[in-house]
Amino acid sequence: LGRFLQTDEHKYMSWLHNIAMGNFLQAHATLFDLAKEEEKIFSKKKTLLSLSKLAALASEDPPDIIANNWEEIQREQTLMLHQEQLPESVIEGLALDVEKFRVFSAEELIELFTGELNVDAMEFDFKKALDLLEFLPKDGRADFDRLLMLIWSRAILRDSWTDLDSTEAETACKRTVFFRTVELAIAEDMDLATRLPNLDRLLSSDELQGLSSNKTFRFFLGTAFEQIQRMMAK
C-alpha cells in the first residue's frame, strides 16, 4: 500500500485531500517532493513549488519545521527565474516553445547564457552565469572549476582583443565585456578572490589556446588584470 501511495498520481490526490482537511504542512511536504521530482515541464515544476510555498505559509505549524525547505524553495525559485530570463535569441535558437519548456539544469543555463546562441551577450549574462555556479550540485567541485573557466574565457572571447587601441590601452580594456563583467561583479559584492581565476590559469584554459601566445592579447589582458587588482584592493 505504501508504494501504491507513492506513485505520482496518488501523491497528486493526497495534497488536494490535505488542503481540504486543512493539513497544510502535509500538503506543503508532498507538493515540495513533487516539485523536486518534476523535471520535464518547467511551468508545472514552477506551480508545484509555488503551491508548496503557499501551503507552508498557510500552515499553522511552527516555522522551524518548514525553515529548511523554505530555503530550498527560494533557491529553486531563483534558479527558475534565471531560466525565465533566457534571452530571446537563445529560445529561438533552441526552437523552444516557452509554454512547453523543460527544466534546465544550472550547468545547461550557464552554457546557454554564455554560448553562441546568446548573440548579444553582455556583462549581465556573464554575471548571471557566475551566479548560476551557486546552483551546481554540491558534490561537483570539478564541474565548478571547469565552468568557472568556461564563463570567463567566453567573456574574454566576446571582444577582439588584438584589435584594441594600444595608445589608450587602459580605457580600451575597460570597454570589454570581460572587464565590465568584473565591474558588475564587484558592484554586486561578489567575492572575486574565489570567483576570478588568476591570469596564468585563464591563459592556460582550453578556450583561449588560440590566443594565449599572442603578445598583443597578453598585453591587453595583463593591463586589464592590473586594473582589476587595483579595484579589488580598494
Binding site: T47, S50, K53, L54, Q74, Q77, T78
Partner: peptide
C-alpha cells in the same frame, strides 16, 4: 487559476 499561485508566491512581486 493555478498560475495565480505562481503570481502570489513570486519573489518579484512579493504578494504573499
Amino acid at each position: 487559476c493555478l498560475q495565480l499561485a505562481d503570481l502570489v508566491a513570486s519573489e518579484n512581486h512579493l504578494l504573499y
